[in-house]
Structure formats: C-alpha cells, structure tokens
Computed example of a mutant assay.
Amino acid sequence: MRIAIAADHNGFALKARLISWLTAHGHTVDDRGSHTDDTVDYPPLCVDVCRRVADGAADRGIVLGGSGLGETIACNKIRGIRAGLCHDLWSTRISRGNNDSNVLVLAAKVLAPEAAEEIVGAWLSTPFNGGVHARRLEQISALER
C-alpha cells in the first residue's frame, strides 16, 4: 500500500519509527515531513498528506501530532478525507470498519511507540464494512458538496 505520512515536531520521532515499521511490512512510504524536530505548524503538513490521498497519489495517509486533535480538524477540511484520531484498537477498528477512514491521526504525546505500531497495523488491515455505513458515508459526502 502507498502511504503518505507527516508529523509535526511532536510526532517527528514516532514518525521515523513508523516509517521503518511500515517499510518492513511491505508498504511504500512517502515521507512528507517534517524532517527535523524543529517547531513547525501542522496544517500545511495535514493538507499535503490529505491532498495526496484525495488525488490518488497515496492509498492512505498517516498524520502525527502531539494530541492529534488539531490535525484531525485540519485533515477533515479537505474534500474526500475521512480522518480518524485513534488512541486504541477499538477506535481504530471503528474508524476503518464503520467510517472507511483514509487518514489515520495519531497522538504522539499519548501513545507508546508499540501501541502506535499496533494501531497502524489494525488500521491497515481492517476492511470497510459497507452496508448501512456506506449510506452514512454518502450523507457525509453530501455535507462536503
């Protein structure tokens, strides 16, 4: 799978670890920044990853921040993006299975690296359930229009 990934200064170290994990699991990773741990604003990073997902240059995106809250808001401003902030496996499976999220947001100040890897693995392997959830996603898409 082609995955675009970005992190602000809070998520920089965890991003590096996840890139190694993703690559080791056979994914193609497009590191969109930040490339240092210097303080940086997250909205441009979110837009970059989300536009790559929305235009098909990436199959999915991962964005890391301190809490992940601002990143989730920024990502969901981009048409066609369904970004989910996931702190555990339950929310991860709901994010993918019910909401067909195409961008995963992780809170680097909350998650242990091992938990982040487990969440990423579950997010990548959980299929969309369709059915009643597809109808709801269409209603969300209508909001964007």
Results as ranks from 00 to 15, higher is better:
5 I>E: 11
6 A>Q: 09
6 A>I: 11
6 A>T: 08
8 D>A: 03
8 D>H: 05
9 H>S: 06
9 H>P: 04
9 H>L: 05
10 N>M: 06
11 G>R: 06
11 G>C: 09
12 F>Y: 15
13 A>V: 14
13 A>Y: 13
14 L>W: 07
16 A>H: 14
19 I>P: 15
22 L>V: 13
24 A>L: 08
24 A>F: 03
25 H>V: 09
26 G>M: 05
26 G>Q: 07
27 H>R: 10
28 T>W: 03
28 T>A: 14
29 V>R: 09
30 D>W: 03
31 D>P: 07
31 D>T: 10
32 R>N: 09
33 G>V: 08
37 D>A: 14
37 D>G: 10
37 D>C: 05
38 D>Y: 05
38 D>C: 02
39 T>Y: 07
43 P>E: 01
44 P>V: 05
48 D>V: 03
49 V>I: 10
51 R>A: 02
52 R>A: 13
53 V>G: 00
53 V>A: 01
54 A>W: 01
55 D>V: 01
60 R>S: 08
61 G>M: 00
63 V>W: 03
65 G>D: 13
67 S>K: 10
68 G>E: 06
68 G>T: 11
69 L>S: 10
70 G>Q: 00
73 I>G: 00
74 A>E: 01
75 C>P: 06
77 K>M: 01
77 K>T: 02
80 G>I: 02
80 G>W: 02
81 I>R: 04
84 G>P: 10
86 C>T: 13
87 H>V: 12
91 S>I: 08
91 S>W: 06
91 S>H: 07
91 S>A: 10
93 R>K: 12
93 R>E: 13
94 I>H: 03
95 S>K: 04
96 R>G: 09
96 R>Y: 04
97 G>I: 00
97 G>R: 07
100 D>K: 12
101 S>P: 11
102 N>L: 02
103 V>A: 07
105 V>C: 15
105 V>S: 11
106 L>A: 12
108 A>C: 12
108 A>L: 08
110 V>R: 14
110 V>T: 15
